[in-house]
Design a protein around this nucleic acid. Structure first.
Lengths: 207, 207
DNA sequence: GCTTGTGAAGTCATTCACAGCG
DNA sequence: CGCTGTGAATGACTTCACAAGC
């Protein structure tokens, strides 16, 4: 369920603000989602709202958190210590909450030994050992496209169960491996596609 | 059509390799897509293959390229020169082909003046001017979540037509603006969700 | 014989709309 | 009354399957 993280974030924010209760229409509205969709999503979790009132923020938050399995630790390994690898290792998303970067790997000897956000870069040779030792469950591929398939296969063989792939290649892997593809140029290209179709807007301030 | 970039990449690669002709089943197979889906997608572009033979790579490539509007220039502005902004400005996806980073903006005076991949960081104040002067059509938001909505609104008002948002917030903007949301922690959370449901795999090498 | 292009069927997700409950 | 939870309706997209054409 790809919308759960969205709900999770919104609920965490409501909790911060001390809100106790929220109606599906309010929560959905702030997220640009149809209220019925939200209610159906939540009903999958078996979660109970109160008719006439809405959902209790605290209860719902912990239900969603448990559904997302954010009540346990998820050790990450980042492969590729280039621009992107650096940025990811330091990024809030990859260091906040239950995700922890436990290893960064690279082939380049010049990068090995470097410390990024408290983690020392190790040589790619050690991939299998690191995955086993650190019980890495999610691998992050931030290598050039040419290396990605090989790295993915090694991560898979080493026992990793899920991958986030930032390299612009379609990975072929055993189907039990969960893969999320994040493709920066594809995002831009999709925008170009639609942008070309949208009539040009008039200058700043107009309209 | 979110699959076009995929086709585009695969076709570019085939062209590189000097392949002249390709069948839908081959192209689709290498991309993990159903051949019928691929054929239907391509037929939307009005593109013609040859029955019994397949598609001519060169023709198809240029058709797809034109459909993606990659036959014109797309000037980008990156807002936020933190870890992610740096990485994006230097990343291949953002510098290759028809996308060009024409401006990088940040509030932090310490960052202003710094040169990243040939572009000098300017102060956020200049956003409106830069968008107009450089005819920026796509804005990239790489700021903290707290700043994103404000920046997005300014970019929109300044005349930008599409946004890629890396900040973990749902932006509320006029609907004629195309927005692509890229959310790193959401990707991880989705994997955690599925990962928790998959039975644990046995140790490396087994299976 | 091989592969495209596409009606028709099938699948999955979203949304409507309302009964049921607080 | 208001809001949830959910059958039923809708809609979007995918896939099948085959006639048409090289």
């Amino acid at each position: 369920m790809a919308r759960l993280p969205l709900y999770h974030r919104a609920l965490a924010e409501l909790e911060q603000r001390g809100v106790h209760t929220v109606a599906s229409s309010d929560l959905a509205g702030s997220l640009g989602v149809n209220p019925a969709t939200l209610r159906r999503d939540l009903s999958r979790l078996g979660s109970f709202g109160t008719r006439g009132t809405g959902y209790e923020v605290l209860t719902l938050l912990s239900t969603v958190r448990r559904a997302l399995a954010l009540d346990r630790e998820w050790p990450l390994a980042i492969v590729g210590a280039g621009n992107l690898g650096h940025a990811l290792a330091r990024s809030e998303g990859f260091t906040t909450g239950r995700f922890h970067v436990v290893a960064i790997l690279d082939v380049d000897p010049a990068k090995v030994g470097e410390e990024i956000a408290g983690t020392v870069v190790r040589h790619l040779e050690q991939l299998e050992r690191v995955v086993a030792d650190e019980k890495v469950s999610i691998g992050v591929i931030a290598t050039p496209a040419s290396a990605a398939q090989d790295i993915a296969a090694r991560l898979a063989a080493a026992g990793v169960r899920a991958l986030v792939n930032f390299a612009p290649v379609v990975l072929s892997l055993p189907p039990e491996l969960r893969v999320r593809q994040v493709d920066l140029s594809a995002e831009l290209e999709v925008l170009a596609f639609y942008g070309a179709r949208t009539p040009a807007r008039t200058a700043p301030g107009a309209g």
